[in-house]
Amino acid sequence: AISMFRSTYSNSASEHESELLKIIKSVDLMVIDDYGIKLNDYGMGKLFQILESRVDKHNIITTNLRLEEMTNGLDSERIFSRMIKNATVLEMNGMDYRLKNLKVIR
């Protein structure tokens, strides 16, 4: 979603940032997959804006981070507080399915 915002700055963009935010705010369910990847200041600002618009709406957020890692830093704390409002946390443990068929040749 963050890259979609950047594309709105082009003169030939089919959608503008305000339209994109309107769509994000209006969807019944939004999924943020792999929360916690490194974002620059621009990305963190947009993520904050997205989550702010989604407070009290249905969201699914997946991450490989531990709780302590999600609240490490001021920006992370602000984002986390919006993510967790009215949330149910499901902790799932197990092997990374992408590593299931990993073969190491030595």
Rank of each mutant, 00 (worst) to 15 (best):
N86P: 00
K100C: 02
I24N: 05
L90F: 12
I61R: 01
K25H: 12
Y35S: 05
K25Q: 14
G43I: 03
I105T: 10
D96S: 08
S53D: 11
I79P: 01
K100Y: 05
S3C: 08
S26W: 00
S53F: 07
N11V: 00
E52Q: 12
I50C: 02
Y9V: 03
E77V: 05
L90K: 08
K46E: 11
S10P: 01
V31Y: 02
G43K: 10
I79D: 00
G36F: 00
I2R: 04
R82C: 01
V89N: 01
V55M: 10
E68G: 02
E68T: 15
S81R: 07
Q49N: 14
L51V: 14
L51D: 03
T88D: 08
R98K: 11
E91Y: 02
G43R: 10
Y42T: 08
I2W: 06
Y35G: 06
K85S: 05
G43V: 02
N101R: 06
S26T: 10
E69R: 08
R106S: 12
E91C: 04
M83H: 02
K38N: 15
D56N: 15
T88V: 13
F80D: 00
I37T: 12
S18H: 15
I79W: 00
A13T: 10
T8N: 09
T63L: 00
M4A: 15
L74G: 01
R106V: 00
I32S: 07
K22G: 06
G45W: 06
F48V: 09
Y35H: 08
Y42S: 12
R54N: 05
N11S: 15
V104K: 14
T63K: 01
D56R: 11
G36A: 06
L39D: 06
S81N: 14
V55I: 15
K25Y: 09
Y42V: 08
N40S: 09
M95Q: 12
Y9S: 13
T71K: 15
N86S: 07
F5E: 01
H58K: 13
R6Q: 11
R82V: 01
S18N: 12
I84D: 02
L99K: 10
L20T: 10
K103R: 11
N64P: 05
V104P: 00
K25M: 02
F80T: 00
M92Y: 10
K100F: 03
L47S: 07
I60K: 12
L47M: 14
F5L: 03
L102W: 01
L65N: 11
K103N: 07
S12Y: 11
R98N: 08
L21C: 07
E15H: 01
K103L: 09
I60M: 08
L21Y: 13
V31K: 04
D56S: 09
I37K: 13
S7R: 14
E91N: 14
Q49A: 14
N64H: 04
S10R: 15
D56A: 06
I24R: 09
V27I: 09
V55L: 03
E17D: 13
T88A: 01
L99R: 06
M30E: 05
